[in-house]
Amino acid sequence: MDTTPYTRSTSTDAALQKESRGGIVALIIGHCAGLMDITALPIWVGMVLVGSLALEPQKAGFLLTLFLGSVVLSSLYFAPRLTRINRRRIQPMAYALAGLAFAWMTQVGSNYGLLATTHVIAGLSVGCGLSIVHGTMGGTGNPHRTAAIAFTMLSLVSTLMLSILPPLVGRIGPNVFFYTMAGIMFIASLAGLLAFPQIDKVAKHESLAVSRLPARVWFAIAGVSLLMVTHSMILGFVERIGVSHGFSTAQITTVLVVSGLANLVFVTLSGPLGSRLSAGWVVVIGPLIQATAALTVAQLSIYATYIVGTSIFISVLTFTHVFAFGLIARMEPTGRVLAATPVMIMAGSAVGPLLGGMLAQHVDYASLGWAAVAFGLLAATSFGLATRGLR
Rank of each mutant, 00 (worst) to 15 (best):
G356N: 09
V169W: 13
I24E: 12
Q361C: 00
S155Q: 04
H31G: 09
V257Y: 13
H362K: 13
L115E: 03
F186K: 00
L256R: 08
T146C: 07
T4N: 10
A262S: 11
Y6K: 15
T3Q: 15
A360M: 10
S259M: 04
G274W: 13
I164G: 07
P42D: 01
A195G: 15
L235C: 05
L235I: 09
S11K: 15
L213D: 13
V308C: 06
E19K: 08
F319M: 08
I121A: 00
T230Y: 00
G123S: 01
S211W: 12
N86P: 00
L100F: 09
F186V: 00
L154Y: 12
G271K: 09
A366F: 09
V48H: 02
T65I: 06
P143K: 12
K18C: 07
A293T: 05
L162M: 12
V265E: 14
V169S: 07
L66V: 13
A291N: 00
G384T: 05
T4Y: 07
L227P: 02
V224C: 13
A339Q: 11
M36G: 06
E56D: 13
Q299I: 07
E239G: 02
K204N: 12
I307Q: 07
G309T: 14
H134T: 14
L124K: 00
K204Y: 02
A372S: 03
T292A: 13
N142I: 04
L368Q: 03
Y179F: 09
R8G: 04
L227Y: 03
T305M: 10
K204I: 09
L154I: 08
A15C: 10
M331F: 14
G352C: 02
V202K: 08
A340W: 08
T253I: 07
G335H: 13
S275W: 15
T83M: 15
I314L: 12
P272H: 04
T65A: 04
P166Q: 05
T3H: 10
Y306F: 14
T341G: 12
A203G: 11
L261Q: 03
L269P: 10
H134S: 14
V316H: 15
T318S: 03
L41E: 00
L64R: 06
V45S: 01
Y365M: 04
S155I: 12
F67I: 01
H231L: 15
T305Y: 10
D364T: 00
P167H: 07
A116D: 03
L261M: 11
T118M: 04
A54E: 04
E332T: 03
G260Q: 10
R84Q: 13
I221P: 10
L130R: 01
I199P: 12
D37E: 07
V50W: 00
M161G: 10
P80W: 13
F319T: 04
M344W: 05
G357N: 06
